[in-house]
Every structure is written in C-alpha cells, then in structure tokens.
Design a protein around this nucleic acid. Structure first.
Lengths: 242, 242
DNA sequence: AGCGAGATTCATGTATTCAAGATTAAAATC
DNA sequence: GATTTTAATCTTGAATACATGAATCTCGCT
C-alpha cells in the first residue's frame, strides 16, 4: 500500500472539461438566464457530446451553485438570489481579513507585497488607458494572491471558488472609469498598510474596498440582467432562437 | 422563463448516495487507509452497483478531498496530510470567530444561545455517564449551530463541509473522559460570554477551545492509524482479506 | 540470470441502451 | 366549456458497451 501516484491527473482536454467551461461561459455571458430550464440531451446535442460528460459537468456546476437538477424534469439555471451574493461577499471579507492578519506574520510577505506594489502603483499606470476587463483579471489576482500568500491552502481554495462565483457580477464593477481609478488607489493603500505590518488598518481598508465594490455592483446588476433578457426576447421574436 | 421548480430534488435513496455513504464510511472506519488504491469496477462489484453511480460518488468524494483519481490507473485514498488538517482547523477557527461576531448582532441570538445552554450546562449533566460518540455529535452541532445562527448560509455550508472532513480525526478527541468534561466546561463558558454579548471574549475562548481539541487530536491520530493498519495487516496474513 | 520488445490486460473516459416515473397533451366525461 | 382520466412523450438515473492508452507480463535474446 501507500504507492505514490504515478500517472498524471485527468487530462485538461477532456470532453467533460470542455462542456463544463462552455456551460459556465453560457451562464456568465447571460446566454442562459437565471430560471432557464434545459435538458441534458439539449446540451449534449448542442456541444456535440454524449450525455455522460454533460452530466458530470452539470453535477460540478451544481456543487458550485450555478444550476439545480429537477428530478426527472430537467435542469435549471439557479435563480439569482441577491441575498446569497451578499453572503458570498461577506464570506469573502471574512476570509480576506483573516488572510491579511496571517500574511503579516509570514516571512514571504515582503516579497509578495512588493511585487503587488509594482502592479498597483497609480503613478506608474496610465489610468485613462486601462481596459476594464484587464483590471478585473488583475483585481482578482490581487485578492487571490494575498490570500494565497497567507499560507492556508484550504482558505485559498475556498476563496478561489468564491472569486469564480462572484465573477459573474463583479466584472460589472469595472465598466466605469472612476471605479477603475478607485481600485488602483485603494489597492495601493492596502499594500502600503501591509508593507508597514499594520494588519488592522489593512483589514479595515480591505473591508471598505470590498464593500464599495459590492455596493457598486449591486446597483448595476439588475439593470444588466434586464438588458440581456430583452435582447434574448427580441431574438426569440425575430425567430432567431435555437 | 423563470418557471419555479415543481418536482422534488434527487431522491435520497439513489444508488449514487448509497455508494457515496458506503465509501465515506469505509474511509472513516479506516477500512480503506490513506494511500490505498482501488478501481471503479472493484467498488461497483463490492457494492452491487454499476460503474456509473460509483463514478459519480467518487467524483463527489474527490471534490471533498477524500480521494484522487489517477488517470487510467485507478483511484487512491488521499494520503494523510497533517499540515492540511492543521489548515482545516485554522479555517474553522476563522469561520467560527467571524460567526461569533456576527451572532451577537442577530436578534435571534438569545434564543439559540439559551437553547444551547440547556444542553451544555455541566451541572445538569452526569458527566461520568456521557458516551463519547454522543458528545461528538453534540459537539458538532454546537459549533454548526453557532455558525448557522450567524445568518450567512454560505459560511454555514463551508463550515459544515469542514466539520465533515475533520470528523475522521475529531472523533478521536472524545475517547478520554477528561476531554469530555473539558468540552462541557468550555462550551458553557463560551455560551456565557455570548449571552453577555462579549463577542471578543467568546471568540478568544472559542479559539482556545478549538486549539486544545486540535492538539489533543494530533497526539492520538497517528497512533490510531497505525493500529488500524496493523489489524488490517493481520487480517491479510490470516487470509481474511477481500 | 538480466534485460528489452511486444503483446496483453486492465484502467478510466465516453457513448449508448434500458428503466421508471414525471410531465404534458389529448380525449372523454360531466 | 370545464374538468378528470388516460395515454404518449420526455426526463433523469442506472446499466452496459466501446475506445483509448497506461501498466504489466511474457517470451525471446544476450
């Protein structure tokens, strides 16, 4: 017993992975809307796969909270539940606050912090040229790297999952330039506090930073969902629906 | 769109669920040891099922961190990684501390706290008659209910998962009577602090409580695993192995 | 005996088929 | 016309069959 693993893990290019990513994109791009119902065979046919990998992908998405299975009656995109998103944000704050406090006690902290400071120096960046989608990716990695650097792998994993689940609404935050500018400034402040080992202050700034983003997103989301629904509706009436 | 779900969720008695529970029990009871390798067909034959539900159960267990799939080379019980358990404990502390601070601000707090106080009053319980396995269940629900009462469902869900994953080693904590007595006293103290809305104090007590349990478990676990391994070995030599 | 090439076995990943019951539509009745 | 009954359809859950490639074993060779 206790033989070490010898072969590589599941290959990246599996059908299951492809279906999983495609479905997730569909949900993220609002091509499937909260409440929409569909069947496994539907998805299988659309994505040129059999039901087996489709089912595996759907179960993964179910565990991650994106879809629900209705016993012998198809699947459903989990309806938007804003209270739930609020709770996700809350949990994110809890985790990142804890991470900050852990981080200042790690030896590797300085290195990570100074690396992040290179990226988030508002003076070195042409703020009016920054693209929103890029900032979203950078913002995600800012928060994830802070948590990862705290040294608790499980915490980092949960936080990573949270980030994925919040992505669907968080990216709306970077559609306005003032939010982009604010993000740079706030990140710089947080890093400054971290560099000085002022973990309490850093945690406080981080909390405010996330809360701001949370509030901004809350304002925008409903509007966007309604827009997407209208576009789809129009497509349906024009006879262009699948 | 937006049709409400009409049929009940997946029935409890599904083959997948049965296989899932059986495998988890095997792992918890040390009938399958960390490092052990096995195949899907093995499990299917043993549990009288086809490979399909076995695979679904295994993937669930994989996501929860109990097993690994080796590409085209079978499955493996994830080797014991004590650092990882330490991290799980750490995360548990983080979540429960946050929950305590949230809890004192909830209106429903008083009710939950006084209910728990009924259970964990050391004066009302014949401590020498308490059974370890019962205390473990009660202890789990003590911590879970505090987190649940804080009002963040996602936090409660993650905490619940943590509890499950730690169960395999946590139950070893209640095999000695002094730990049982200490558990009652510490829980009572925590509840007292909560009732007085001293969340800082409660968080501090809770942290110490969990750390104690963590240390006690750390001492016992290795010994137990070795014992289980010896028993199995003996069975193998006696020709009684499956 | 030690070693290596090739065939074979066996593993998971995927596709297909079968089963049971929920949904839906039609038909029959009041 | 409204409502109940019934039959056809459709859905997921589970079992089985097939494909692909890794691991292993055999057999011949040095």
């Amino acid at each position: 017993m206790s033989t070490a693993p010898v072969s590589p893990p599941r290959p990246r290019g599996s059908v299951t992975d492809r279906v999983y990513e495609a479905l997730k994109q569909d949900i993220f791009e609002f091509r499937r809307l909260p409440g929409d119902r569909f069947t496994e065979s539907d998805v299988a046919q659309r994505l040129n796969a059999s039901r087996t990998p489709v089912r595996e992908a759907l179960y993964r998405l179910q565990r991650e909270g994106y879809v629900d299975v209705l016993f012998r009656a198809g699947w459903q995109i989990r309806p938007f539940d804003f209270e739930h998103f609020e709770e996700l944000y809350d949990l994110r704050i809890t985790l990142e606050r804890a991470a900050v406090h852990k981080l200042v006690r790690q030896e590797s902290a300085e290195k990570v912090i100074s690396q992040l400071q290179m990226i988030w120096d508002p003076d070195r960046v042409a703020l009016d040229r920054v693209v929103g989608s890029t900032v979203r990716v950078l913002d995600e990695s800012f928060h994830c790297e802070i948590v990862a650097a705290a040294g608790n792998r499980e915490m980092a994993r949960i936080h990573q999952e949270l980030t994925e689940r919040l992505r669907i609404i968080r990216r709306l935050d970077f559609s306005k330039e003032n939010r982009i500018k604010a993000t740079y400034e706030e990140h710089a402040e947080i890093l400054d506090a971290l560099a000085r080992k002022r973990s309490d202050h850093a945690a406080q700034l981080l909390t405010a930073h996330i809360r701001t983003s949370q509030a901004a997103v809350r304002d925008i989301t409903m509007e966007r969902i309604r827009e997407a629904a209208e576009v789809l509706q129009r497509r349906v009436y024009a006879g262009d629906a699948g």
